[in-house]
Structure formats: C-alpha cells, structure tokens
Amino acid sequence: MRTHFDVFGLPRAYDVDVPALEKHYRELSLQSHPDRVAQADARERLKALENTTALNEAFKTLKDPVRRAFYLLKLHGVDLDREDAGAQKDMPLEFLEEVMELREALDGAMEKKDLARVQTMGGQVQGRRKAALDEAAGVLRALEGGGPAEEAPAQVRKASHALGRVRYFTRFLEQVDAFEEESLS
C-alpha cells in the first residue's frame, strides 16, 4: 500500500520537517495539478485528478502533528477516526468518568452564559490535550524507531489511549469554540 509518506518519498516517522514538506508540496502540485493538463485528453486529466487528490490528502495528514499521529496509529491497525471502532470502548473507565464530569461542568457554565468560566476551562483542557499529544508522540517515536517486537502491542495500546484522550479533549474544545463564536455574534 502506498502511504502518505511514500507520496513525498519520506521515511515513515513521527517527526516531519513541515517547512520542507510545504515546499515539496508546492513543487509536486505544480507538476501534477489538473490545471496543468487542462487542454489534455480525458485520461490524462483523470490521472492528474487522482494524483493531486492523493497528494492533498497526504499533505493534509502529514503537516498536522495531530492528524499525523492518528495516521501512524492507523498504520499500526487502530483507526480512531471510525465512530464504531472498538478502540474507543477500550478507554480506561476513570478517564471516561472524568470526561463526563468535565462536560457537565462545561454545560453548566454555558447555560449560565459564563464566558469567562468557559474560557478558563478551555485553557485547562488545551494544556491537557497538549500533554496527551506529547505522550502519544513519544510512544510513536519509540514505535517507529524499531524497538523489540514483543513490546509493540503494549506501545500501540498506550498510543491509542493517549490519542483517545486527545480526541475527547478536541471535541471539548470544539464546543468551547462554538460557544465563544456564538457569544461574540
């Protein structure tokens, strides 16, 4: 299977030089974009469409540290993007309880239209999301670095839990954003 890393001729790794990736993306776009073959026959145009679609998908995934982490985890067989993924049910119970409490507190603050309180909570969750992502990044670096094979399943599980937390926190922050936007309008 052709991975997003293959599209850019990069080795599979958590760390990516994003400015270099952006430059490479622009070069590849200049080569393969459908606008380059606007006057060519249908087959060539279709090929350009497919290549550029794949290039855009790869770029979007690799330039963003969160998407990149989820993608690497997916390459290890855990797809957290899918709603019905068993991996989600696998989250530790105490974390799910904590998330429930956080959500209730947020709902309460939003009901009272307490923008300051909502923003404070947003700031705290932002910090926790970053910590969770850093943890996932550390595990993914170790995984891609090629440690002992027998440790891999435990590592994957660890990364999956950390990214599961990232996912919950992201949803939380989306709600905060929506509320902020509404309050400002």
Binding site: P34, T53, N56
Partner: peptide
C-alpha cells in the same frame, strides 16, 4: 461529515 470545509481540492 466526510470532507471538512477548507480542505484543499481536489479531494476525496
């Protein structure tokens, strides 16, 4: 949602 707004096109 299948494709998020502000995704560069072409996309799939």
């Amino acid at each position: 949602k299948l494709i998020q707004r502000n995704s560069t096109i072409p996309t799939a």
